[in-house]
Write a protein that binds this DNA or RNA. Structure first.
Lengths: 144, 144
DNA sequence: GGGCGTTATGTAATAATATGACATCACGCA
DNA sequence: TGCGTGATGTCATATTATTACATAACGCCC
């Protein structure tokens, strides 16, 4: 087993800890989906996850969407809105939101915490969720 | 005809001007779609537009998606990523990006220009498009 | 241990969103 | 006139997501 695998295991363990701390149950199915996301190392489509989960094609869509809902609620994954894809989230964002830089050439995603954000929130507007995604070319791809 | 209608006409005229200035052709179909978006005053789904366009149901999806592609390219509309919906855009953003505040209760959207992004873009990353959307409750809805 | 509520998963069907491919039309222009 | 280009029409299908209901797993109370 290589380094990547080990790292995945560590992240899964961390996710376990985080869930039990919050009183959420990271069941085998949910954990497996998170593992697939972590192994992918980038955004994955729901139906690709579904195929990976059960290569014989017996898994049904709700299976994967439920798992993804759980993971996103738990803060263990993000949905990349403009790609209809999902991404494992390693760091626990507190109140900060995720800011994604998505390379349209190679598909890699760089994730950061965005500091609390908008200066010009309209008076009285209560934000419950923010989407902040940038599309373009990463350093690698813009030089080549 | 009330004030809203008049205002829509003015915006359409403005769109016309903007297009001819850029060498784009705001055809009757495209203009009609923009008009529908303006009249709606908020985000509309592609298939709803399609239905509004041809109440007899004879219009096919590519019709509306092509028109929406044109309008978004031209800067006359935005796609609201997390809603799979489209929104007329009245102000021409220059290099600034659109920042949307979307009330999940009443569905209204407040749009602003976000200043070119005061962020920590990774070294070398070239942004071609940004998505900035906030979901929550507007002032109206959070008090009631 | 037996019933029972709650949460998670399985499964079938279908809804909602979007694109590909090709035909046709309209219009400018050599 | 004939041709090239961009726009639209039309059919088919792909992709993404949800609803609804059945079953299973597990804790809890008695």
């Amino acid at each position: 087993m290589g380094h990547t695998h080990t790292s995945t295991e560590m992240k899964l363990a961390k996710a376990d800890a985080l869930c039990s701390q919050k009183g959420l149950s990271l069941t085998p199915l949910r954990k497996r989906v998170l593992e697939l996301l972590l192994e992918a190392g980038g955004p994955v489509k729901a139906y690709d996850l579904l195929a990976a989960l059960k290569p014989d094609g017996t898994a049904q869509p709700p299976t994967i969407y439920r798992a993804l809902d759980f993971l996103t609620q738990a803060g263990l994954a993000h949905r990349v809105e403009a790609l209809n894809a999902y991404l494992a989230c390693v760091h626990g964002h507190g109140d900060e939101i995720a800011e994604l830089f998505i390379c349209e050439n190679c598909g890699t995603v760089r994730e950061q915490h965005a500091p609390a954000l908008p200066d010009h929130t309209p008076e009285g507007f209560e934000i419950s969720r923010s989407v902040l995604e940038h599309y373009g070319r990463c350093a690698q791809c813009s030089t080549t």
